[in-house]
Nucleic acid binder design. Structure first.
Length: 876
RNA sequence: GGGCGAUUGGCUCAGUGGUAGAGCGCCUCGUUCACACCGAGGAGGUCACUGGUUCGAACCCAGUAUCGCCCA
């Protein structure tokens, strides 16, 4: 900026139009938000923003919560902290994978080697799903390249939105969760977990999505109501003394039955414990056992345990050491081969009728057969049951046995992980949640964990698990002796890269090696965003200056996933929290008080919203909602914000106009020039607002700060500006009086402070005004402090008392239905006795603002508010 | 079933022990003089319900109802 004193740059007409474009470019050009990495950790305020999923759609919820973060960032920057505010894109995961398949007509086959010259068969599928058979198989590395290519567009769209919204992000710090650095971090963290025994593989029954054909983790579950039928089915006692009836919603699992189980205290079944029964149709002999997890008042009180119908079956199977008799395959169909445990001729015939069919179709077949055999008691009764779903799936999850990788999370604290759950609860207690009650969601989740974190996925677009396995001389995979890469070579792709000590021609041959085909769950990477953005191990100098981060802002919906898993990884790797504070934003509710749905969110696109109302207005709406509180999607609130932004422009233009066009505006304002009590009272009130707003922002209560500032600003405009208008204009061309200088100086000081107070919420309007008379950016200006304003020698209530006196004069005119410019020729102004000295101190301004020619001021006991009596108004 | 949060004027929300608040909307009026994307004035609420504590409760305690969410 120019060092010579600039003259008035206050425009004749002010407008909000075009401010976003102009200032976002100026900020970029001037590096206003660039991070200075020479600053020490104590000087830095670092923010770990959860990267949005770029292949998902933008919605107003993003705008809402990201604005909250930006308000904090701007406040901390003005407070003098060097703000580390990077932005990432979460492009790693299933949604992108599916888009890429259709867009380019490819599918990933991780067994294939990388083809550097690959060109996709098509670019831009016309929105329709390409048939799997028509898709060209490509290596995982080729697939990742296509994903990166496609997500670039999405990311540009997001960035354009964030820039228009005014996020003060340092755009040179951007990362993607699938980029090379992220893959290296995710793989390194995994290998460290493996080396410390925190990551392990196990062959175990687990939840499985038959549509996506992948295992899923507890955090991805969603319990939903699912319609079904209770079937009352007879099992036959092997001693020939009759039948035992059970009720089941899944009769197709009868061939997988391994026991009948009742509660140990259930009187009805005491005599059956220890005996055996035969399953209907399939004639398999199974024991009747007791276990406390059986629910006596549910159905018949005795249940069939199958491998596996639900998680209780898994518990029974494990604790009662039952055999494994699985019939449901990974594709959701029953095994084509008749299982060897079904031995009777009729049993094998019955199974053959259902072999290879889906569970739904098999159920129909079984029910028909049960009806024919007489083993179905009555007709199936419709019911609603809770079933586990993958959050992105639409079929209930099955449970299949498979080899998977896990990271310990305290969910199975017996064994080596003992104490981990307590450690994570202690981290939760250490983390400062805003609002505080959000901590219980974390605690509920940690206490409710019932298994370790399953991180392997049988998918393709994700970070590869960086391992190979030796092949024995027989060609068998030796999973027990995984081969790890050198950390310096990360990231690796086991399908293309060769493990140490091997050559490529040994891939897949006996005595050679094979790459791990699975990828990590998206969360296994995105739980490391503080490490990715902070340059963990890659840039230790940076990492030391930003980690642990100060703030993790996020939505309440991902406390159990993103927040928890990030705490876990940091706890395991660094023995610390990943951040000190977590700011949790609420939901956006539609006018029906329901969570804003995608379909409704799409009607109003975020960019359209910003274009219609202006970014400051939309930010005002978002900033008006407290952390943790759901907010209504309310256009009215945006209009209020717009009104405030326009008022800032107009009031500023007015206040700055008194000085005249030939006066240098960026001159120092000396508080000692403020000598009139009313002016000093106004500044004292502002000092109090500064103090309280600062306290509120330090406590992550941006709403309170905004409310305080906004309320003061309107009083400043409606009362103070009106009161001092005449005095500030001055009498003429000669040297201004001390009273005029006092008003002009007070106006300048007040404006200067209020612009800075409003800057975090209204970055565009405040920057515009700042540019008229100040140098540099308001967003790099120091946050105001109360001690820079004169105070202490005058009652701050003076402004309020004078304002009320003015209101009394206005009321007379309003009730007389005359213009506010109408002069009051004579009147008596009665004020509460206590306020008399305050009003007296400002009576000249009150008289001028009220256009009262002859005003008699009296104090009166028992009066609540100033009143005007005997007013005689100018005619015409 | 357990937990968390909410319930204040038509709407959106502040207000955590001392006479009910704001903005929007509404009504009346004004306005070439910073701002019509404006200004002034006004009307409008037994603070969900029932008990309790207290000199005093929107606020604290117990319970109930309704709504939302989380976990089972």
């Amino acid at each position: 900026m120019s060092s010579s004193a600039p003259l008035s740059r206050v425009p004749e007409k002010v407008s909000l139009e075009g401010l976003e474009d102009r200032w976002s470019h100026a900020w970029e050009g001037q590096g206003t938000y660039a991070f200075d990495r020479t600053r020490t950790r104590a000087e830095v305020y670092s923010i770990d923003t959860p990267p949005p999923t770029v292949s998902g759609s933008l919605h107003v919820g993003h705008v809402f919560s990201y604005t909250h973060t930006d308000v904090v960032a701007r406040f901390q920057r003005m407070r003098g902290r060097e703000v580390f505010y990077p932005m990432g894109w979460d492009d790693n995961g299933l949604p992108t994978e599916r888009r890429v398949q259709n867009y380019f007509g490819v599918r990933c086959d991780p067994a294939l080697p990388y083809d550097p010259g690959f060109t996709p068969p098509q670019v831009g599928g016309e929105g329709k799903s390409a048939r799997a058979a028509d898709q060209v198989p490509v290596s995982r590395r080729n697939f990742v390249e296509l994903c990166e290519r496609l997500t670039v567009e999405d990311e540009q769209q997001f960035e354009a939105l964030w820039r228009r919204l005014g996020l003060s992000v340092d755009w040179s710090q951007t990362y993607q969760t699938i980029d090379e650095r992220s893959r290296a971090v995710a793989q390194k963290a995994f290998l460290r977990n493996l080396a410390r025994g925190e990551a392990y593989q196990a062959e175990a029954p687990g939840l499985w999505d038959v549509t996506f054909q992948t295992a899923v983790a507890q955090a991805e579950l969603e319990a939903r109501e699912y319609p079904g039928h209770f079937h009352r089915v007879a099992f036959h006692r092997t001693d020939g003394t009759g039948a035992v009836h059970i009720e089941t919603t899944r009769p197709e699992l009868i061939p997988a039955c391994v026991a009948l189980i009742a509660h140990p205290d259930d009187e009805r079944y005491q005599h059956l414990f220890g005996t055996t029964v035969r399953s209907p149709l399939f004639d398999v002999e199974v024991p009747v056992l007791a276990h406390p997890a059986a629910e006596p008042d549910k159905g018949a009180g005795i249940a069939m345990c199958c491998t596996f119908g639900d998680l209780t079956d898994v518990q029974w199977w494990r604790e009662l050491q039952l055999p494994t008799r699985s019939v449901v395959q990974r594709d959701g169909r029953l095994a084509a081969e008749t299982p060897e445990w079904i031995t009777s001729g009729s049993g094998r015939r019955h199974y053959a009728d259902m072999a290879g069919r889906t569970t739904f179709s098999a159920r129909t077949a079984v029910v028909d057969a049960l009806r024919s055999s007489g083993d179905l008691d009555g007709e199936p009764a419709a019911t609603q049951r809770m079933a586990n779903f993958y959050e992105k799936g639409d079929k209930p999850l099955e449970i299949v046995t498979s080899r998977q990788w896990y990271i310990r999370n305290g969910g199975r604290d017996e064994g080596t992980g003992a104490g981990l759950r307590e450690g994570l609860l202690a981290r939760g207690a250490e983390l400062q949640f805003h609002p505080d009650f959000m901590r219980v969601r974390y605690e509920n989740w940690v206490n409710g964990l019932n298994g370790d974190w399953l991180i392997s996925r049988q998918r393709f677009f994700g970070v590869a698990i960086p391992l190979w396995y030796p092949l024995t001389a027989d060609g068998e995979v030796d999973h027990d002796r995984p081969i790890v890469p050198d950390e310096a070579l990360l990231p690796v792709d086991p399908s293309s890269d060769v493990p140490p000590g091997y050559t490529e021609d040994q891939r897949g041959v006996p005595g050679g090696f094979v790459g791990e085909a699975d990828v990590m769950d998206t969360w296994a990477t995105s739980s490391l965003t503080p490490q990715i953005a902070g340059g963990w191990e890659r840039d230790p100098d940076l990492f030391e200056r930003v980690f642990p981060m100060d703030l993790r802002p996020q939505g309440q919906d991902i406390i159990r996933t993103w927040l928890f898993s990030t705490v876990l990884r940091s706890h395991l790797e660094h023995g610390s929290l990943p951040w000190r504070h977590a700011g949790i934003s609420g939901w956006i509710l539609d006018p029906d008080r329901k969570k804003m749905s995608k379909s409704k969110g799409n009607v109003v696109t975020p960019m359209g919203l910003l274009e219609e109302h202006g970014s400051d207005a939309v930010r005002y709406w978002a900033a008006s909602a407290r952390l943790g509180t759901d907010a209504a999607f309310e256009v009215g609130q945006m209009k209020i914000g717009r009104r405030l932004a326009i008022k800032v422009l107009n009031a500023s233009r007015f206040a700055l106009g008194f000085a005249g066009d030939d006066v240098p505006l960026d001159r120092p304002l000396d508080p000692a020039d403020v000598v009139v009590p009313l002016d000093r009272a106004m500044l004292a009130g502002l000092a109090d607002v500064v103090r309280r707003a600062t306290e509120a922002l330090e406590a992550y209560d941006h709403t309170r700060a905004l409310e305080l500032t906004e309320t003061f600003f309107w009083t400043f405009c409606d009362d103070y500006l009106e009161l001092v208008k005449d005095r500030a204009y001055g009498s003429g061309d000669e040297v201004p009086t001390a009273e005029t200088v006092s008003a002009r100086t007070a106006l300048g000081l007040a404006l200067d402070v209020q612009l800075r107070l409003l800057a975090p919420v209204l970055p565009f309007a405040t920057e515009e005004v700042w540019s008229w008379w100040r140098s540099g950016s308001v967003h790099r200006a120091p946050w105001p402090t109360p001690d820079a304003l004169p105070a202490g020698d005058v009652d701050p209530a003076t402004l309020d008392a004078a304002g009320r006196a003015l209101a009394a004069l206005r009321k007379v005119k309003s009730e007389a239905k005359v213009s506010m410019r109408t002069r009051i020729l004579t009147a008596e102004l009665a004020v509460p006795t206590a306020q008399l000295p305050l009003v007296e101190a400002a009576v000249q301004d009150v008289r001028a603002a009220g256009r009262a020619v002859d005003l008699t001021l009296v104090g009166e006991d028992g009066l609540e508010v100033a009143v005007v009596r005997g007013a005689e108004l100018e005619q015409g």
